[in-house]
Computed example of a mutant assay.
Amino acid sequence: MPVPLSILDLAPVTSGGTARDALRDTIDLARRAEEAGYHRYWLAEHHLAPGVASSAPAVLIGLVAAATRRIRVGSGAVQLGHQTPLAVVEQFGTIDALYPGRIDLGLGRSGQRGAELARAATTPPPERPATVVDGLLIPSPFSFASLTKSPLFALSRALLQQPGARSPDFADQVDEIIALLTGTYRSPDGHEAHAVPGEGAEPQVWILGSSGGQSAQVAAERGLPFAANYHVSPATVLEAVNAYREAFKPSEGHTEPYVLVSADVVVAPDDDTARRLASPYGLWVRSIRKELRAIPFPTPEEAAAHEWTEEDRALVADRIDTQFVGSPATVAERLRVLQRVTGADELLVTTITHDHTDRVRSFELLAEEWNA
């Protein structure tokens, strides 16, 4: 049997569209995803991005859960650098109270990595050539160090945190969330705290990560399921899943490691159509990596009018080369390679096209082929 397929949605705003359009499309896509048999529907968290409407995942998760009946709904991922553990537990405890047994709480370090990225600006990672591992492309690592020089980098951090605030250690925040959910929280001086709603809620807690660093270690040491980002950081996906498996300790919820791996896909009835629908992707990624804010997703015609420089091409090469684009058979075969090489127990696919009907059809075609 094929491993389960799940969806990651950014609620993309397209060129000529609005955030209202994007959110309505998300609700429609979630309903269609449930009908097509997808296992989970996760909402991302992005801020200050004109092309992404998923900035408040807890709110959107509640709306998606209300609009569906069976599919699991969750976060991919809550950025813990911007919220306290108590706030997260209360939000997801509220949703779980209304939709028990269906909610996933994915946690990520994205909001905590500002200082690390700033240090990386002076010590970029060593160069590593691209390789192919049993048919899976592992590109050269992309350095995010240059992004820290943008004024928008500092502005984002300032707007997302209270003045003078400092994020606690990620592992400590995860432990506090688990303690608040299970009713075992104690302050350093021994005082109890009880989250209402939240205590006794049972969202499935996940850790998302892009490398073999702290996220993978936190997930492994606590026996939590782990989601590795091939679609965001394809160069480090193998080190992420290997580090997680090597350090895994069984827990009450998971006696064995459980790995989900993400992929960016565009499926159409034939390869040529899929390539045309996916053609704006490079321009969209360029806006994230060069301007620090995703632009509204362009039309294929708008993308074709862009004059690419060699610097631009190098900036997005790893993401373009690892996007899975083609007919249902083409993409399903490439996903099988990704699953085999990473040993994934589940795959999380994300798709952006300019036209909502093309995006819905992409997910439907893939599900039909995957489960055939």
Score class of each variant (00 low, 15 high):
291 E>R: 14
159 L>I: 11
201 A>E: 04
335 L>S: 08
180 L>Y: 07
100 P>G: 11
143 S>C: 12
346 E>N: 12
258 Y>F: 15
167 S>C: 11
279 S>D: 07
33 A>F: 09
262 S>E: 06
129 P>A: 14
230 Y>W: 11
35 E>H: 07
59 V>K: 00
280 P>T: 05
275 R>Y: 04
330 T>Q: 09
120 A>V: 04
39 H>G: 08
341 V>S: 06
43 L>W: 01
199 E>Y: 13
284 W>P: 05
265 V>G: 05
124 P>Y: 08
34 E>M: 10
254 H>M: 14
211 S>F: 03
169 D>W: 03
254 H>L: 15
261 V>S: 01
299 T>W: 09
237 V>H: 03
356 H>Y: 10
13 V>G: 02
212 G>H: 02
358 D>V: 10
159 L>N: 13
212 G>V: 00
366 L>M: 12
158 A>T: 12
241 V>E: 06
196 V>D: 15
345 D>Q: 10
334 R>N: 08
97 A>H: 09
255 T>H: 12
223 G>F: 06
31 R>M: 13
262 S>W: 04
171 A>K: 01
371 N>P: 03
347 L>F: 03
320 I>W: 05
40 R>G: 07
113 R>C: 07
229 N>V: 11
52 V>C: 04
336 R>G: 13
215 S>F: 01
6 S>P: 02
248 F>G: 00
224 L>K: 10
161 Q>D: 13
